[in-house]
């Protein structure tokens, strides 16, 4: 019955299409440059996996606008999750690759969806273990609300009001999908 439910009722509601995703990223790139007055001392760190792709796209746009190179890092937050001790299965580890010293840089964390804020809390802890950034900013493609921690994004692609049991999913070209953001109407299991 559960299996039948899944195939039958998996409604997808499109909330951003490819051109909207592209325009949102272009705007965020401009906002990053405006707020930081250029590319000096800024670095982008994407949170695995979606955030990493978005960080690369933002860096490309920033380069097109200002001709400045921005270092890009990739952060895996698994070891900093707050539910490790209570999970039965350990989540798969991926590699953190931040090939530059983040101390005194203005680091822009990049993620696809901002939800409870727990991922960002873990990411900030992970980042600070790598050095002491001058500032941490947060860029997200989608803010869907329902925060459980006092965390706020610096740059937001789109605010999407959702109910708790909806699932927001970002599909990206890098993962072999057409760029889009959808709301999936299925009951979610477990913590984010």
């Amino acid at each position: 019955m559960i299996a039948g439910n899944k195939t039958e009722k998996k409604q997808e509601k499109l909330v951003m299409d490819a051109s909207e995703v592209a325009r949102a990223l272009t705007r965020i790139a401009h906002e990053i440059l405006e707020r930081n007055k250029g590319t000096r001392d800024i670095a982008l760190v994407g949170i695995r996996t979606g955030g990493v792709h978005l960080a690369h796209r933002l860096a490309k746009r920033i380069q097109e606008i200002e001709r400045g190179q921005v270092p890009i890092g990739e952060l895996d937050i698994t070891l900093y999750r707050d539910d490790l001790a209570i999970r039965k299965d350990q989540p798969v580890l991926r590699k953190t690759t931040v090939p530059f010293n983040i101390s005194d840089l203005k680091v822009v964390l990049v993620d696809d969806v901002l939800f409870t804020g727990r991922t960002i809390r873990a990411a900030m802890d992970g980042l600070i273990d790598l050095g002491r950034p001058a500032e941490i900013q947060l860029a997200v493609l989608v803010d869907r609300g329902h925060r459980q921690l006092p965390i706020k994004a610096t740059y937001i692609g789109k605010n999407i009001p959702t109910s708790r049991d909806e699932n927001v999913k970002v599909f990206l070209e890098e993962q072999g999908e057409e760029d889009r953001v959808v709301i999936l109407n299925e009951s979610r299991g477990g913590a984010p």
């Binding site: 070891l79 001790a85 590699k95 690759t97 790598l130």
Partner: peptide, 20 residues
């Protein structure tokens, strides 16, 4: 492999087994 990266950091500590 992921933990090799941790051992190469200046702060060689992650909180994964806190409390164990």
């Amino acid at each position: 492999e992921s933990f090799k990266e941790v051992s190469g950091r200046e702060i060689k500590k992650v909180p994964a087994l806190r409390g164990k």
